[in-house]
Simulated scan of single mutants.
Amino acid sequence: MSRVTYPPLDTLKQVAEELWLVDSGPMSAMGIPLPVRMTVIRLPNGQIMLHSPTRWSDALNAELSKLGVIGHLVAPSVAHWTFMQEWQARHPDAMTWASPGLRKRGAVKKSGLRIDEDLGERAPAIWSDVLKQRVLTGGFGVTEVIFQHLPTQTAILVDLVQNFEPERIAPLVRPLARMVGVVGPNGRAPVYYRFAINRNRAAAQAVARELVGQWRPERVLFAHGRWFETNGTARLQKSLDWLLD
C-alpha cells in the first residue's frame, strides 16, 4: 500500500452528521502517486450524493446502501470524473451532474460518459436546503464547482487546495512537490492550476473571498492530502493567499 494514502481505504468514514468521506488511491499524475478522496452526503430526501466518486467496490457499495439510495453522482471539476462510469453502471437511475464544460472535453466524449445536468452558480432545489455552490472558472477550460454543507459548515473542494504531508511523500519527489506548492501544513493548489485560475483572476478572487469571508467553513474537505479538520477558515485563508491578495 502506498504511504501517500489514508487507510483504511474504500470505506466510509463519518465526518459529521449526514456527511462522510471515502479515502482511496493512489492515482498517478505525471508519475507521482496521489491520494484521492470522495465526499458522501445524505440529502434531506434520504438520497445519497457521491461527490467526486472514487473507485467502485462491492464492499463500499454495500456500506453506502445502508445509508440510502444513491441518487446523485457529481463530477465537480474537469479532472474528477474518472470513476463516474463505474458507479453509473451499477446505479443507472442516479443523476449525473458535472462542472460546466466537462461534457465538451475530448476524453469525456470518447469515454461515452453520460452527463445529465451541468452544475451552475446556484444549487438546484433538490439540495439547496443543505448545500450551496459556486463555480470557479479559470483559463484553458479549468473549472471547479465548490460546495458548502450548510448544516455542518463544511467546505467541499477538490483541487483548489492540495495539502500533502511531507512524511508521506517519497524523498525523491518531495522537492518537486514543494516547488509545485502542495506540501502542508498549508498546501495550495498546484502551480499549474493557479496559473489557469489566474487567467480569470477577478472572478475567481470574488469566489475565494466569498468562501473565506462569508461562508467561513469550520472544516474543509478536498481530494488530495490531509484535509482541514479544524480552523477551516483560517487555514483556507493561508492556502488561498495567492488568490486573496
Rank of each mutant, 00 (worst) to 15 (best):
W227Y: 14
T5F: 00
E165A: 05
P100E: 09
E165F: 01
R103I: 10
A75G: 08
E144M: 08
P35S: 14
H91R: 11
N163T: 05
H51D: 02
R178G: 01
R37S: 10
V182T: 09
E167V: 07
L102T: 02
G106P: 01
A16D: 11
S77R: 11
L67N: 01
L176K: 13
P53D: 03
G71P: 00
M49V: 01
A89R: 15
A155D: 08
S111Y: 08
R199Q: 14
V69A: 11
P124S: 08
G68Y: 06
G112K: 05
L67G: 01
K109Y: 06
G46A: 04
R42F: 08
I197L: 15
P76C: 09
G141A: 10
W20D: 05
L157S: 03
H72C: 03
L60H: 06
W227M: 00
A189I: 07
Q153N: 14
A202E: 15
V130N: 09
A123W: 07
L9S: 01
F83S: 10
N186K: 15
I156A: 01
W127A: 09
W20K: 07
W215F: 04
R194F: 00
R219Y: 01
W127I: 07
E167T: 07
T54Q: 15
V191D: 12
E167D: 05
F147C: 09
A189M: 15
V40D: 02
R178A: 01
T82D: 07
E17K: 15
H149Y: 14
P166R: 04
K109T: 01
W56D: 05
P33C: 11
R199H: 08
A208P: 00
H224L: 13
Q148S: 10
K104H: 14
W97P: 08
E17F: 02
V108C: 08
E17L: 05
E210V: 07
V36H: 05
P185G: 02
V142N: 09
Y192T: 14
P7H: 12
S24D: 14
P151F: 05
N163P: 07
W20R: 13
R226M: 04
I156F: 02
R134W: 07
T137Q: 12
I197F: 10
L136H: 12
Q162W: 03
L102M: 04
N45V: 03
R55T: 11
V207C: 09
P35V: 09
M179E: 06
V15C: 11
D245K: 15
A29S: 13
R90E: 08
A89C: 11
E218S: 09
W20V: 02
E117H: 15
K66C: 11
L34Y: 13
E144Q: 11
E218M: 04
R216C: 06
M84A: 06
N61D: 13
R178M: 01
Y193R: 10
G31M: 10
G101F: 05
L34W: 13
I126F: 07
G213Q: 05
N231R: 15
G31K: 12
V220I: 04
P171D: 02
D116G: 12
P166N: 03
T54G: 12
S77I: 09
I146N: 04
L12K: 12
